[in-house]
Amino acid sequence: MDTHESEAPMATASEIREIVGALDDEVVALILDAAPTAAEVLEAYTWLRSDQRLSHRAEYELQGKTARVIEILESEEPDVDGAD
């Protein structure tokens, strides 16, 4: 189990929206249910928008809560990287 992040507080709905942008309440609730820190949400969102995702670099495999946030964002915003 990953306990090194346990001392950091869980991200709030406003922090999630600040990092990712406008999201439906349902999406924010799904992310909150995963109980990530703001750093994990930022890592997930940054990775989704990066070239590493496009090249599927095996050596950079996200896990745990960060991976769950990615799953949620990908399912809700399949074209996140094209939203510029």
Rank of each mutant, 00 (worst) to 15 (best):
Ile16Lys: 04
Ile72Phe: 01
Ser75Asp: 15
Ile19Leu: 10
Glu15Asp: 02
Leu54Ser: 10
Val41Leu: 05
Ala38Lys: 12
Val28Tyr: 08
Tyr60Arg: 11
Pro36Tyr: 10
Gln52Ser: 12
Asp51Gly: 03
Pro9Arg: 00
Ala44Lys: 02
Arg17Met: 05
Ala44Met: 03
Ala35Ser: 14
Tyr45Phe: 15
Glu74Tyr: 13
Tyr60His: 15
Glu18Leu: 13
Leu62Tyr: 15
Gly64Ile: 07
Asp84Asn: 10
Pro36Met: 04
Asp51Pro: 05
Ile31Ala: 03
Gly82Met: 05
Pro78Ser: 11
Ile72Cys: 06
Ala34Met: 02
Trp47Thr: 04
Met1Ser: 13
Tyr60Cys: 04
Thr66Lys: 03
Ile19Val: 15
Leu73Trp: 04
Ala11Leu: 01
Ala58Ser: 08
Met10Thr: 13
Leu23His: 12
Gly64Gln: 07
Thr66Val: 06
Leu32Glu: 06
Thr3Asp: 10
Arg68Ala: 01
Ala35Trp: 11
Ala22Cys: 13
Glu18Arg: 08
Ala39Met: 07
Leu23Asp: 09
Ile31Tyr: 02
His4Ser: 10
Thr12Glu: 03
Arg49Cys: 06
Arg17Asp: 02
Val80Tyr: 15
Leu23Ser: 10
Ser14Gln: 15
Ala67Asn: 10
Val69Gly: 00
Ala83Glu: 00
His56Lys: 12
Tyr60Asn: 09
Glu61His: 08
Glu18Gly: 11
Val20Asn: 04
Ser75Met: 11
Thr12Asp: 05
Met10Val: 14
Thr46Asp: 00
Ala35Glu: 15
Ser75Asn: 15
Ser55Thr: 09
Thr37Lys: 08
Ala58Trp: 07
Glu76Lys: 10
Ala67Gln: 10
Asp51Glu: 14
